Computed example of a mutant assay.
Amino acid sequence: MRITLLINYDAAALLALAYLQPALSKHQVCVFYTRHTAKVTVSPMLADLSQFDAKLTHQAESAIAAFSLERLDDINGVDFARYQQTKPDLVISIRHMRILHDAAIAVPKHGVINLHSGALPAYQGVMATFWALLNQEEHLGTTLHYIENSAIDQGAIIASSHTPARYDHSYLWNVLNIYSAGCANVIDAVGRLHNGEPLDARAQAGGGAYFSFPDHAALTSFQLPLFDPSDTLTRFLPRRAH
């Protein structure tokens, strides 16, 4: 299959690529990335997290060397033609920082699937792991779902994962820790589509909440460090990628 990935250039997204790399090696893959930093400048705490995340990102770059990454910031506008040229059978979105419009969603014949770093519908939006930890959830989730329109994190659910929350580690550690299980669901979905099997997807049931970047009150009430200086991506990278 021809697969186009839409990612953000951060540690968690590159870690996800490292997990996906062996399974995607049999496919024709194109990777587009965004860089998004404007929001984190609102809070010094989030700015520090972003700077530390950038250090971890460098640890992943050698692990994803098999991929050729291209920056694509305006997928719905001036960059649409470049995206369309990839003629994807499937688009996979992971931490991508752009809302896709109908024209972009309509390009791949198998649709657009998104790996969201939170349990849906309960935790829509950004930094879902932060809000789940703030709410003292026992498990942290990922949700693989279709992007059906420009509504954020509301498409039909293909698969979910549930990873124990670790309150003896940092927020960032917990974010990185959920991607192994989440990417396993992506690999399963790709395999099914490659074999001509439809993906079983169910509409989201029940209400949820949309979360944005935490404000000062939420950050100061958070009981865990956002990151620990000893956090490393090496602990999470697949052994073959070290």
Rank of each mutant, 00 (worst) to 15 (best):
I147M: 09
A16H: 00
P121V: 10
M97Y: 09
Q124F: 01
A205N: 12
D153W: 09
G207M: 08
I64W: 01
A201R: 13
H58R: 14
D188P: 01
S62Q: 13
F67H: 08
Y83P: 07
T37E: 13
P121C: 10
F222M: 07
N135H: 13
G118H: 00
T34V: 07
A209I: 06
A63C: 11
M97R: 14
L24G: 05
L134Y: 11
S117C: 13
G191L: 10
A63D: 04
V186A: 00
N114V: 10
N135Y: 04
K87G: 02
T57Q: 12
A54Q: 15
T4E: 09
E197L: 15
I64K: 00
N174A: 05
I187G: 04
V78T: 07
N8G: 13
W131R: 09
E148I: 08
D188M: 04
L226E: 11
G206F: 11
A201H: 12
T232R: 04
T86C: 11
N174D: 09
R82T: 12
P238I: 03
A65Y: 01
L14G: 01
A13G: 03
L14E: 03
L6P: 15
I178E: 06
H58V: 13
Q51P: 00
L140P: 01
S25P: 02
S25E: 14
F222C: 06
Q84V: 06
E61Y: 00
I113C: 10
E148Y: 05
A128P: 14
I158S: 08
R2M: 08
I7M: 10
L144Q: 08
S68L: 03
F52H: 09
P108I: 08
D73Y: 02
H101T: 02
I64F: 01
I94D: 03
S161L: 10
A209G: 03
F227M: 03
A156D: 14
V40W: 08
I75E: 04
S93E: 12
D228H: 13
G155A: 03
G141C: 06
R202W: 08
